[in-house]
Design a protein around this nucleic acid. Structure first.
Lengths: 233, 233
DNA sequence: CGGAGACAAAAAGTCAGACTTATTTGTCAC
DNA sequence: GTGACAAATAAGTCTGACTTTTTGTCTCCG
């Protein structure tokens, strides 16, 4: 996934990033560049580059005479794909999965509505193809193939919305869907109702029916929320 | 705003970041670290740190023997507050403002619904205070005071939603509202209907009426979309 | 004429060491 | 206690030498 080994500083990030996002250093903790460089057996230049990246993610703050202090979680750039990946790989994976699913429930219906207005005929075709792929893999423990088409489906919706902010959430949705399949729920075949909803969304988008595409997608995301027991009492 | 001069590498970013996000270097353009270091009159170490930050934002990609290549806009980390700020300060400010307003229209209603469920009594009080402040500054060219309370209002909503992803959009909403006030529309007093809607949202949240809070907020965001001529024909 | 392999050049990547600067903290006089 | 001054500290910066990877090219042979 992404760019595994892009140099020494990348290796440092792969270790230090997850540690920080996992909360191993409480907010306010102070790290020293020199000590870190020793620990990872890299030069100070490399360590400084890694710290700069963490700083740009608002995970830490570097100040003279003080050191590199860890910032509270509330200040992190939680939309940074790298940060999301680190958190999904760590201890607060459940919380991250929940907050991202809620985000999906807000974004995707609106994106589907916009897609119904702006999707090209090519994108409509892709969408239909994805939906059919989901149907084809919806029975008989073909979870891998199902996931593939599910991810592609939602990527097309987000992309076809014509909004760049929505489009860039494709990776996030992919992570959530993948995480969901690999982890807790869905050891069985997917809910047939969900599959049907996807097909109907594809139809609505093709028909240019924004309201229906939005409503149907809302039903899909409600299902996703229920799977994680996020619901209104 | 944020952290203006955090060292030499920060100064480099303040110049190079806006240039790239403004599209001055077409995707695929190649920059050389040494040349950049000369241009900004900094050492290579400083320049490397700046490049690393740009790389973590997916604005550029650094490869051996080829140089620092600019990535297409579709790959940028458009949720990075720094990137958003650079783009808002540059040429595609209008497009950025539009896409962010659409994002708001998706997020804020859902956030308001969640806030109605999760807001503490303190947050409810804050919300009411903000709404009252908006009313008090809604007439007689008190735009500055109005904006202040408007921003605070939406921050509280997003924060009270209890979702970290929503909460972190407070800065983005602040930028959008500020940008809207300072720029095109709203040289006159704000729309009285919008002011009333904010008051009613505060009431709904306090009453714990999620559906109503969501619907009322949706009306607010629809108004924001209309101001930018983003609407369904 | 064209492909395979060797070679050379280019640019980022890495390291080590010396030096600068800002900030904190402690101390001492008042 | 308060103020100013001095010392300590850790990040920040610069430089120069060296390494590594990639790519373009050139030759050689089929």
């Amino acid at each position: 996934m992404s760019t595994p080994g892009r140099g020494l500083h990348g290796h440092v990030l792969d270790t230090l990033g997850p540690e920080i996002t996992a909360g191993e250093y409480p907010p306010g903790s102070v790290l020293r560049t020199d000590e870190l460089a020793q620990r990872f057996d890299v030069s100070r230049s490399v360590m400084r580059e890694a710290v700069r990246v963490l700083e740009s993610m608002h995970l830490v703050e570097s100040r003279r005479r003080v050191g590199v202090t860890v910032r509270p979680k509330s200040e992190w750039n939680v939309y940074d794909p790298q940060v999301i990946r680190w958190r999904l790989a760590g201890a607060d994976r459940p919380q991250q999965l929940r907050s991202l699913t809620v985000l999906r429930s807000a974004i995707e219906p609106v994106a589907a509505g916009l897609a119904a207005r702006h999707a090209t005929s090519e994108q409509c075709a892709e969408l239909t193809e994805c939906a059919l792929g989901m149907v084809a893999h919806s029975r008989g423990h073909k979870l891998e193939g199902y996931l593939f088409h599910d991810v592609a489906f939602h990527r097309v919706i987000l992309s076809a919305s014509g909004n760049e902010m929505f489009a860039r959430l494709g990776d996030v949705v992919a992570e959530v869907l993948t995480g969901r399949t690999q982890h807790d729920v869905m050891f069985e075949d997917p809910d047939p109702a969900a599959v049907t909803l996807h097909v109907r969304v594809a139809e609505a988008v093709r028909a240019g029916d924004a309201a229906r595409a939005e409503e149907l997608t809302r039903e899909i995301t409600v299902g996703a929320l229920q799977e994680l027991d996020i619901l209104a009492p």
